[in-house]
Design a binder for these strands. Sequence first.
DNA 1: CCGTATCCAACAGGATACTG
DNA 2: CAGTATCCTGTTGGATACGG
Lengths: 141, 141
Amino acid sequence: MEVTIADNQLIDLQKKLKVFFTDEERPHEFCPVRDIMDRFGDKWSLLAILNLGYSGKTRFNELKGKIEGISQRMLTVTLRSLERDGLLTRKIYAEVPPRVEYELTSLGKSLLQQILELAQWSSGSMDEIVKARMEYDSRLQ
Amino acid sequence: MEVTIADNQLIDLQKKLKVFFTDEERPHEFCPVRDIMDRFGDKWSLLAILNLGYSGKTRFNELKGKIEGISQRMLTVTLRSLERDGLLTRKIYAEVPPRVEYELTSLGKSLLQQILELAQWSSGSMDEIVKARMEYDSRLQ
DNA sequence: CCGTATCCAACAGGATACTG
DNA sequence: CAGTATCCTGTTGGATACGG
């Protein structure tokens, strides 16, 4: 009865889609997909959230070591914008040398869950994508 | 018993996270989050998938009308890369004037489901984010 | 240690004009 | 209609130097 399950998923999909395309209350310029991309579609935000989720409370340079390739500047910029949106907290300890600890809020953790779903889709679909890509490229000689 | 449910979610989250951080088989440069961002983190890909999912089989200019603000060039570029990754099909009808129809593959539809989850998270979290943002800004005078 | 300030290169993507 | 081709601009983000 796989067909029935697939059918149900399709119907469910259409229902969810319809909400986003026919909601009269929603101003036209408001699009949740665009919002997501504008806020978290940059190079480092999702990686920062992922690492904070895995490591829990983390210091600045510790985090810098875990996110491979990120510059000091971009880590600061990224963390600030995530803090501004309420996805993580920043705690400064008045010590010498200074210590600053970052930690996901519950809102940040809820986004983390969504990211993980996406990551799992990516892991599971990678082979298929790579295969499609090779076929496409070979078709152009 | 909300606590129990929340606890279970947290344990589940940690389990999923651990897979991505401790998988010894995985080469270090392979990160599903980075892959997602590299492929679909651009300005138009997710919007194209979303619209194709809602409208089904769609012609080029029809799609252009639905995705507000996209240029002809970027629609072409976006659709080509999605086709290359096996997320949609492109069918050309040898007519005059020419007709080209785009349609999501089952792989594309599976990504659409993930996008919708994200979109729903965004819709549901928007108020909280806007509020956090205003508080943050007001704290800097 | 944890930033900020400044400069700069690379690239995404918009505008426009042209074609099978 | 459904694209290319070309040009051009704005933004992202890297490198480096400095500061509390």
